[in-house]
Design a protein around this nucleic acid. Structure first.
Lengths: 335, 335
DNA sequence: AATCATGGTGGAATCGTTTCCATGAGTGGT
DNA sequence: ACCACTCATGGAAACGATTCCACCATGATT
C-alpha cells in the first residue's frame, strides 16, 4: 500500500544542509543575487534532498494563488472540451495549474463555484458565463481577474469570442444562395448574440423575418431534441435550419430521422461548430467551424499575461461545406 | 474595470467584530463546541462581514490540500471528458475543487504534472496512467493518495476500470456468431489488457490466433488513421475489426470510406466506447459501451472517502448492436 | 588611516488558519 | 465548605515560504 508517507522537506532543512540561512536559499532558488559558491552549495543541497518548495507557503505569503480557474457549462460537450484543452495547453506553458468547474449553464451553480474559487484564493478565472453580467459584480469587486470565453456578457471584462455575426451571416447567405427563404434558427438560451445576428442577416437579405423562426432550447440534450422535433413538426414551411451548436445539430439530425424528414432533400441543415463526427454523419454536415481551442488559448493568454488587456478579441469562423445542404425544393407538406 | 480589489477579511477581524478570540471563531465555524450565544455572535459577525476562510491558511496549517488532481491523456476525447465529468460531479458533492492536467499519454509529461501537483501539496490524485507502473513509485512514496482510472498498471494502487475481458469477449463472440473467423483488433499502445483478452477470446472460440491480427497505434488521430488504413489495405482476409477506442473507431470508418471498403458489407466493425455520434454515423456503429462517467465517479469516491479502499473495482460493459456488423461474406479480394 | 559605498548574508516578521494548552467559571458530590 | 470535574474560552505556537532590514566584511575614495 502507500509508503510511510515521508514528511516533505522544507526550506529550513535545505538551508541547514547547505550551511546557509533560509533567506539565502529562498533568494538563490528564486533567482536573486548570491555569491557563486553559495549558489552552488544551495543548488547542490536542494538537488540532493529533492527539495520542492511548497506552493502553499509561497502563496500564503505572496497573498495570491498561482493557477487559474476555468468554468465551463459542460466538459462533455466537444466545444467546451476543446476550449478547455486550449486553456490547459496555454497554462502548461506558463507552468500554472488549472482548476476546472462545470456550471451546467446554471447561474446558481456558477456563483457557488466562483465562491469556492475565491476561497482557494484563486485570483484568475476564465469563464464561459452562464447568467447575465450582473451576477459578476461581486466577483469583480473581490479582485478576481476574469476573462470571458465564448460569450460576452459584460463590456468591462475582457473576452474572447467567435465572430458570431460573421458566422451567422455566412451561413444564412449560403442558404439563401441555395434558394432557401424560410430559414429557422435553432438556438440555445443565451445565444442572444447569434439570434440578433440571425434576424439582421435575414432582414438584410430580404428574407421574411419572423420571430418564431427562432426556436429556443435549454442546454440539455433532451431539451434540444424537443425543440428540434417541435420545429420540424410544426413548421412544415421551413426548408433550412441553422443549429446554434453541436448538441442542437445532433438533436436536429436525430429528430429529422425520427420524423422521416430527409437531409438535405427535405430540409437543409447547417450546424455551428465543427466536430469530428460531422464528417462521419449521414449525411456529412455542413458546419460553421469555430476555433474552440484558440478561444481557450487566447483567453488563457489574456488572463496569464500581466500586461494591458484588450477589451475583446473576436476570432473568425469558417464555413465548411459538406453534404447537408441542397437547393430549395417545394415546401414540405404539412404533417 | 476591476474594482479597488478590497483586501480579504480574515478570521482576526471576525473575532474582533464578534468580540471573541480567533480560536473561538475557528471552532464555531468548523462545528466545534461553543455556547449558543457565542455561536450566534460569531455567525452574525461572519455573515455581516461576508467572511470566507482562506483555504491557503487552512491547508498550510492542516498540512494537506483539499482538492484532488486529475490526469487524463486527452480531455478532447469523449471518453476522458465523460470520465472527467464523473469525477467533477462527485468532487462537487464533497465540495472539493479539482485540478486537471492532460498528459497526452506521455509518461514524461505525466511525471512533470505529478511534480506540479505535489508542489501544490495535492495529496489526492486520480490518474489515467500513461506509462508503466514503475514511474509511480516516487509519487507513492511522497505520500500521494492515488487511484487509477480506466487502466490498471499496479496492483498496489486502487483502480476502477471497465471490464475489458468481458467486453472483448462479448464483442468477439458476437462477431464469431455472425460467422467471422478472421477478426482484427485495432489497439492503442498500452491496451495490453484488451489485447490479451482478445487473444484468449479468439483462442477459446477456436478462431485462428495470429499475432498480426492485432495492430497498434499511438493515441493521436493520425496514428490511428494510419494503423486503420494499413490494416484494411494489407489484410484483405479480415472480415471484421474490433476498434479499441472511439478515436480508433473513427479512424476505421474514415479509412474504410477512403479505401472504398463498405461497412458492414465488406467488413464488420465494433468499436469500444459508445459516443453520441455512433448512432449518427453511417452506418450506425455497433459498440461496446463503457460507463465512462461512472468510472470517474467511482474513482473520485475512492479517493475522497477516507475509509478502507477496495483494491480494484471493475465496471461492466454493454454490447449495443446497431448496424455496423453483418454476416460474414466471402473474403475481400486482395487489393 | 578613517570613512563611505557595496553587496552578500541571515534573523525575524509576516501571511491566515488550526490546534494545543492553560485559565477560569460553574456545577455536583461528599 | 471543599474538591473534583466539566466546559467554554482565548493566547500562542505551529505550518512553509518570502522579504524587510540590520549586520558584517571587503574594497574604494578622500
Amino acid at each position: 500500500m502507500s509508503g510511510p508517507a515521508q514528511r516533505r522537506i522544507t526550506i529550513k532543512e535545505v538551508a541547514e544542509a547547505a550551511g546557509v540561512g533560509v533567506a539565502t536559499v529562498s533568494r538563490v532558488l528564486s533567482g536573486g543575487s548570491a555569491s557563486p559558491e553559495t549558489r552552488e552549495k544551495v543548488f547542490a543541497a536542494a538537488a540532493r534532498l529533492d527539495y520542492r518548495p511548497s506552493a502553499l507557503g509561497r502563496n500564503l505569503r505572496r497573498q495570491r494563488t498561482g493557477g487559474v480557474g476555468l468554468l465551463v457549462p459542460d466538459i462533455t460537450d466537444s466545444f467546451y472540451a476543446r476550449l478547455a484543452d486550449g486553456v490547459l495547453s496555454c497554462a502548461r506553458s506558463y507552468g500554472e495549474p488549472v482548476t476546472i468547474g462545470v456550471t451546467g449553464d446554471d447561474p446558481e451553480r456558477e456563483a457557488e463555484l466562483i465562491g469556492a474559487l475565491i476561497e482557494q484564493s484563486m485570483d484568475r478565472l476564465i469563464a464561459v458565463p452562464s447568467g447575465d453580467g450582473d451576477m459578476w459584480a461581486p466577483a469583480l469587486r473581490a479582485g478576481l481577474n476574469v476573462v470571458f470565453a465564448d460569450r460576452r456578457v459584460r463590456t468591462d471584462v475582457p473576452s474572447v469570442v467567435p465572430d458570431d455575426r460573421a458566422g451567422v451571416l455566412t451561413a444564412v447567405e449560403y442558404l439563401a444562395g441555395l434558394g432557401h427563404r424560410r430559414i429557422a434558427f435553432l438556438a440555445r438560451h443565451g445565444q442572444s448574440q447569434r439570434v440578433t445576428a440571425f434576424l439582421s442577416a435575414a432582414a438584410s437579405l430580404g428574407l421574411p423575418v419572423d420571430r418564431d423562426m427562432v426556436v429556443h432550447a435549454r442546454a440539455s440534450r433532451d431539451s434540444a431534441y424537443a425543440a428540434a422535433a417541435g420545429l420540424l413538426q410544426h413548421h412544415s414551411d421551413v426548408t433550412a435550419v441553422l443549429a446554434g451548436g453541436n448538441v442542437l445539430g445532433e438533436a436536429a439530425v436525430l429528430a429529422a430521422r425520427e420524423l422521416d424528414v430527409r437531409i438535405p432533400r427535405d430540409v437543409s441543415l447547417i450546424m455551428f461548430d465543427d466536430v469530428p463526427w460531422a464528417e462521419l454523419c449521414s449525411p456529412p454536415l455542413t458546419v460553421i467551424a469555430q476555433p474552440a481551442q484558440d478561444i481557450g488559448y487566447r483567453a488563457a493568454e489574456l488572463v496569464l499575461r500581466q500586461g494591458r488587456r484588450p477589451p475583446a478579441v473576436t476570432l473568425p469562423t469558417r464555413l465548411v461545406v459538406r453534404a447537408s445542404c441542397g437547393p430549395r425544393v417545394a415546401p414540405r407538406r404539412s404533417s
